[in-house]
């Protein structure tokens, strides 16, 4: 088991996750766009937001890979199957809390439960299970995260 393997898996896994969601986008299953959502937290400029968003998403992917690695070390187990299981959990948390609740709470341009008449949020919030972005969003997000987790777990164990 190796931290460098987990980091490499985090990098590749994030690329795969982003590509999978992009493909789901093209297939008309969802309108979710994580780099756009992340980048617009920092800037109103669309092009810059997407570029920054991709970098932020990659950084987040590496941080989550480190968190996965900590669990692998704590349980003294790794591999693609455990990674995929963690990815499933990660996806569920993302859809129900992380992107659904936490992101709107900290995103300066997105509405949340505290939004009232004195503010005008610019961005459509994701809603429970991110379904505001299309009914296919939960399943696409879960599958993409399972793939991410499997890649992180696989890379961490290969390197070990």
């Amino acid at each position: 088991m190796s931290i460098w393997g987990a980091l490499a898996g985090g990098f590749i896994g994030t690329l795969v996750l982003t590509t999978a969601l992009r493909a789901a986008n093209e297939l008309g299953l969802t309108r979710i766009d994580l780099p756009f959502l992340l980048g617009t937290a920092l800037t109103r400029d669309r092009a810059r937001a997407k570029a920054l968003g991709y970098l932020m998403h990659l950084a987040a992917g590496e941080l989550f890979a480190l968190a996965y690695y900590a669990i692998f070390v704590a349980t003294d187990t790794s591999g693609w199957a455990l990674g995929a299981l963690l990815g499933l959990l990660h996806g569920i948390v993302s859809a129900t809390a992380l992107v659904n609740v936490l992101l709107p709470a900290v995103h300066p341009r997105m509405g949340n439960e505290l939004t009232a008449a004195n503010s005008s949020p610019l961005l459509e919030p994701p809603g429970f299970l991110l379904r505001n972005y299309g009914r296919g969003t939960p399943i696409a997000t879960l599958l993409a995260h399972v793939a991410y987790g499997a890649i992180v777990g696989g890379f961490a164990s290969i390197a070990g």
Binding site: N25, E26, R31, I32, D33, F36, L37, G111, S120, P121, L122, L123, E124, P126, N132, Y133
Partner: peptide, 12 residues
């Protein structure tokens, strides 16, 4: 309109 991304709600 939005296409393949979340909607943006503009201010007046």
């Amino acid at each position: 309109a939005a296409h393949q991304e979340p909607l943006v709600f503009p201010r007046r």
